[in-house]
Design a protein around this nucleic acid. Sequence first.
DNA 1: TATGAATGAGGTTTCATTCAT
DNA 2: TATGAATGAAACCTCATTCAT
Lengths: 209, 209, 209, 209
Amino acid sequence: MGIYERKQREKKQRRQEILHAARKVFSKKGYNTATIEEIALEAELSPGTLYLYFKNKEELHTFLSIEILKRLADEIQKVVKEDISVEQKIERFRDVFIEVYDYDSNILINLFHLQSGETLQNLSEEVLKQIKIHSIMAHGAIIDVVRQGIEQGIFIDEHPAALADILWATYSGIVLWVDSKRLLNDEKDFVRSTLKTAFKVILKGIKKN
Amino acid sequence: MGIYERKQREKKQRRQEILHAARKVFSKKGYNTATIEEIALEAELSPGTLYLYFKNKEELHTFLSIEILKRLADEIQKVVKEDISVEQKIERFRDVFIEVYDYDSNILINLFHLQSGETLQNLSEEVLKQIKIHSIMAHGAIIDVVRQGIEQGIFIDEHPAALADILWATYSGIVLWVDSKRLLNDEKDFVRSTLKTAFKVILKGIKKN
Amino acid sequence: MGIYERKQREKKQRRQEILHAARKVFSKKGYNTATIEEIALEAELSPGTLYLYFKNKEELHTFLSIEILKRLADEIQKVVKEDISVEQKIERFRDVFIEVYDYDSNILINLFHLQSGETLQNLSEEVLKQIKIHSIMAHGAIIDVVRQGIEQGIFIDEHPAALADILWATYSGIVLWVDSKRLLNDEKDFVRSTLKTAFKVILKGIKKN
Amino acid sequence: MGIYERKQREKKQRRQEILHAARKVFSKKGYNTATIEEIALEAELSPGTLYLYFKNKEELHTFLSIEILKRLADEIQKVVKEDISVEQKIERFRDVFIEVYDYDSNILINLFHLQSGETLQNLSEEVLKQIKIHSIMAHGAIIDVVRQGIEQGIFIDEHPAALADILWATYSGIVLWVDSKRLLNDEKDFVRSTLKTAFKVILKGIKKN
DNA sequence: TATGAATGAGGTTTCATTCAT
DNA sequence: TATGAATGAAACCTCATTCAT
């Protein structure tokens, strides 16, 4: 391996280290309360160094959000192509949600926060575009599956986008809600079991008869 | 009416004016971006005066959240006492959610944000207690209804709390999700219709056969 | 005097105090080396307070420059209206230059710096407009006098604007040059005498025969 | 040519390349806005390398100023030795000024800036000495010519240094002033013509009767 | 000699909160 | 009770300079 390649790899790794530290701090403190200094401390780097890898605080944060949104969208799209029944696909969606939740529950929560209110209004055009693209991809894939189910006479005859919304919203709602319950009640995490029940219920609900 | 009482009433009214202004500004800007000065301007008062009525910015904001949470809990509890079937009660929940959403959608969204991550960690004991009480009340009431349904052999035999979570989470999830879609896609608000479909699906899903 | 008026006057005075402190610090250190903190210290105020009176560091600095430029332009325009010969007017210009130099030699030097290179490129449209207006006013007035002189057959037949440029440039050049000599050689200030000689020479130079 | 000599020559050339790049960037951006990184980029070197050839940013910048100041002083001194009349010498000064202005107008402007206020105060003793030497040389040469003219009964009987100041100041003043006019009014460069008129006027002004 | 990633001091600016009036 | 000018801590970010390779 040449010097250039090693440098490139090291650079990439450093970037990952920063992202890792940022994920940790943003998760613990939230966007506004987290400070660059703290992230730098966590990454065992100086604040200035972070700016060699990311333009500013927001870009660093948004990068994490887009990353997980992209992951979610990718996995969902894979499901669509699988050679299984629509019912199984819905169940697979649930698994994908759980996997992504397991990968990084905190940033996922931030993502859902990002998607509404305050933060959304201050993002750059480029970032908004990225978010839109991945959101549309993920949502579109779900809609496709729902539509298939309706066409095959398996699902009830509701507007596909509405049913897709329900699936997505249930997912994000459960993540946020159960997360807040955990914080409020110090109960242990039971996102997974709740999600399973939720999808069982919904699957039953959207099936004909 | 004596002087003391009139003073008390004026004080209460002034408090309401501040809350009204704060609601408006927080809704428009979000917690972090909103400034005390702006709220004071909106309330046609000076910044200093706000501190005669509220300890600090956060308490002011949290008060608004608790207010709407309390309203939600109250309405839900009323539903439980109504002399209607469990299925009708579930439908009434949906209506309550919609009513509260209509009352102040933005603060409601803030509430759900409040319930997780960043903000929650910095709240005073007293405020946390308040949130807990109302949350438990609201959630408990829903659980009761679900339990009744299970006992009456109408609903499927899942853990009542889990089903209640699903209802609640679906509600908050749809509010957040649809809100974010509105911001991203400039589509008009269709929270209401999505919520209706969602509850229809879920009601079907939680009913036996 | 009512409370409102007193407050207004105090506010104006505070503004003047800040300007005074800023003048002092900018003069001593130059724009880039001067810090807001130092100006605040000099004004016996906290850094934050300065931002209640001026939008930012640049506006504070530019205000001082425009102020002196305006003063210069006003005085020059007055000269034009005086009922004296063109030769006497040129001599009065010299006196105005000296007066303004005496009023605040350091900011005047900053002004000439401001008018070229680096700084000029980063100013806001509004500020540039102000500078343009006053510059044009001052320069235009000088041109008028020179033109009169030419028309009356007193001055040589050169382009009036060019002769005006020479007067102005000589003025600013002497201010800058003598200032730099002072710093380099620790000689005492002899701007006044040099200016007088300069104008004597130039007046002789621009007169016919 | 030995290895040592070649190395020396390469070193010198590298130094020149850096100076060339620095001249370009400083001219475009001004001292404070220009960054070492940008200069390094322009020189196709890394930032660290610049520090092998120059102690720091300021020295790099000052070197450029001294260079042009030296050039100015040298040319002026040559004029003194020429076998022409004092009047012709004054005219030659004008040409020298124009030549140097043409060589690098921007750094020249920086030089005049350097000579006063902000920057001057932070220079090292060595650099200040250099500037003084060249300034005195140039100025002294001009004074000599003026003195000759007075002794020959050609120029008016003013203090030679004062007349020399006027010449120098007019020159630098016109350069700065016309430069600023160019920036403010987007007029095309007419330094040359203005300078010519200026020297004609002054020459007439300093000549007896 | 050359690199360029890393440093970290230091600057500007914001804004919740206080307190004299 | 009401004011609003003043505070000052703390955040983000830049960039000249260093140093291990």
